[in-house]
Design a protein around this nucleic acid. Structure first.
Length: 547
RNA sequence: CGGGGCGUAGCGCAGUUGGCAGCGCGCCUGGUUUGGGACCAGGAGGUCGAGAGUUCGAAUCUCUCCGCCCCGACCA
């Protein structure tokens, strides 16, 4: 930004408001004083592409990252977002990988109705209680033109229909018809769908009135088999989160108060976001026979005796996109783990003349083909040539903000030298390395692998750094009330504490806005006594603030 | 649904005795540039969130409604 002094005088406020031409346009100091800027005589250059930074204003930073990466935006419908192509491409990656994992564990996809008869929801007492407050209800099926030209709903339905907040009841009703014999079991079905939960306070990806997800619903002959399924899918989610999203998670059962309405046991994977809060990134429920009894999902066992099925359900949603953002992104915008990135390598041609353009583009296309022939994570490397006619710097920053793992620039000088210049999203945005083109082709997959594991390690180190073992209520209070350190958005973190699953525990930490997230299944052979009730417990629970 | 903040060009904002709707960025065109978020010139773009009211006259005053953001209650 080579602004002359006089120009700067004219554009001071704007320069300050738009660091480096950031199109998000966030302006933290709209009334920036003129003299202050003139004194320094420095061009107002940004330190970061995203403003505010994480430590300045974490929630605002999150929204700016979503916008700068062009993932989604608010729709005209309250609480509902539009998922834009880049955001949807990430979701499609997630779908692709998870879908393969579901199939590999024996599941099939099917599709059930969006609408659920009101009476179905009433079948399971706790289930109604849990979802009643956030249901969209369809009561009419026709519109008529009123005298004032406005449309009026008419044709009242006999029985109102609920837009599914989850599909246990409608799917269970079908299972009741499908299952008769022990030979019909297990039923292992998944559906990719949208659901609606009329949330009070929506946030892009993290909590929207309508969201996309998958919901697996299974029915089994025995309790053991259903529990095994519940834990198997929890493992699938944990593997996916850690291997593909580079997001370390804790998995374990939730306390009674945090259970899915109608479940006997709810297990979750919990991830730590960069502000120290926990995000429930996936859940797997053991439903016991609750739904089977409510809906009559019965079978004759091999002895001819009629029994109720044991069912499970499990799901992850577009919330995972929010999880990626808050796990990996930095003050320059989104950073995508290579395995989930829709584009892993972006090739940026640099040229002036038409001859240069032709030669450079030819080289780019060859590189694209070479990379497609190379493999990373058992797939061709996903490459995009960005030949748009716009300034190079602008283009580079767009890809930084969109989180593309590797950027490759090819200009006439590189062409002459048979080289490329390579930048990594996990390094500084201005860092570049020049290497022979052939070497890059050979090493690209390795680089992606290094970025992937580096992102995971960094996230894990962050979580460990903000995790503590605490042994008194006073220590817990101190941990969560201690103000964030300068330059850090983190307040609190994960506290591993001995607590019983008891209302007294919930009440104790309620003022801190801290809850028991889960009781980790792994590395938790650590018996002790509950710091609130004094009862013996077999291991530590994780206390945290959560999304 | 409670508390707080806010709705003026795509984005960020200015516009307080009510009197022609502005600035910057972005966008378009032309030119000069080009290995790093360029410069010059010209241009397009707004029923000022919606409705009602007060007034000769409303972005500005009054009322109602809608939406967004933050904090709470609820949740994937």
């Amino acid at each position: 930004m080579n602004t002359s002094l006089s120009d700067r005088t004219k554009t001071l406020v704007a320069a300050d408001a738009m660091p480096g031409g950031d199109t998000t346009g966030y302006n933290p100091r709209p009334h920036c004083s003129l003299p202050l800027r003139l004194e320094t005589l420095e061009p107002v250059m940004p330190d970061h592409a995203i403003s505010p930074t994480r430590s300045q204003d974490y929630p605002e930073w999150y929204q700016q990252v979503v916008r700068a990466a062009d993932l989604a935006e608010q729709s005209p419908v309250r609480g509902c977002m539009v998922i834009k192509p880049h955001g949807y491409a990430i979701w499609e990656r997630m779908q692709g990988i998870l879908d393969r994992m579901f199939k590999a564990t024996g599941h099939q996809n099917a599709y059930f109705p969006l609408f659920i008869p009101l009476s179905y929801l009433e079948q399971e007492a706790k289930h109604v209680e849990g979802f009643a407050k956030e249901c969209a209800v369809v009561t009419h099926h026709r519109l008529e033109l009123g005298p004032d030209g406005k449309l009026i709903p008419t044709g009242k339905l006999e029985e109102p229909l609920v837009v599914r907040p989850t599909s246990e009841t409608i799917i269970g009703a079908m299972y009741a018809k499908w299952v008769q014999s022990w030979r019909d079991l297990p039923v292992l079905i998944n559906q990719w769908a949208n659901v609606v939960r009329w949330e009070m306070r929506p946030r892009l990806f993290l909590r929207t009135a309508e969201f996309l997800w998958q919901e697996g619903h299974t029915a089994h002959a025995t309790r053991e088999e259903a529990i095994e399924e519940t834990l198997r899918m929890l493992d699938v989610y944990a593997t996916f989160a850690e291997r593909d999203l580079a997001m370390p998670v804790l998995k374990g059962p939730k306390p009674a108060g945090e259970r899915f309405p109608g479940a006997v046991d709810t297990f979750s994977i919990e991830a730590m976001m960069q502000d120290g809060k926990a995000l429930q990134a996936g859940t797997s429920h053991f439903l016991g026979q609750n739904f089977a009894q409510a809906q009559g999902i019965k079978f004759s066992n091999s002895s001819g005796v009629e029994e109720f099925c044991w069912t499970t359900s499990w799901g992850v949603s577009t919330r995972l996109i929010g999880a990626i953002i808050m796990t990996h992104s930095d003050d320059d915008g989104l950073a995508l783990p290579p395995r989930i990135a829709p584009t892993q390598v972006v090739i940026l041609p640099i040229h002036r003349t038409d001859e240069e353009r032709t030669a450079v583009l030819a080289c780019c296309k060859q590189l694209e083909a070479d990379l497609a022939a190379a493999r990373f994570a058992d797939e061709p490397i996903r490459t995009k040539i960005d030949a748009r006619d716009m300034r190079g710097g602008d283009k580079v920053w767009q890809h930084v903000k969109q989180g593309v793992p590797l950027r490759v620039e090819i200009g006439p000088r590189d062409l002459a030298a048979g080289a490329v210049s390579v930048s990594r999203r996990d390094r500084g945005p201005r860092e570049r390395t020049t290497m022979p083109l052939a070497q890059f082709v050979a090493e690209a997959a390795g680089l992606l692998d290094e970025i992937q594991s580096g992102m995971f390690e960094r996230a894990r180190a962050f979580r460990e750094q903000h995790s503590v073992r605490l042994d008194s209520t006073a220590a817990v209070v101190e941990f969560f009330e201690r103000p964030a350190e300068k330059g850090s958005p983190v307040q609190g973190g994960f506290a591993h504490v001995h607590v019983a699953d008891d209302p007294a525990v919930t009440a104790m930490f309620d003022p801190l806005k801290v809850t028991v997230r889960c009781i980790p299944l792994e590395g938790n052979d650590d018996p002790g006594t509950c710091i609130v009730t004094g009862r013996p417990v077999s291991g530590r629970s994780v206390l945290a603030r959560s999304y």
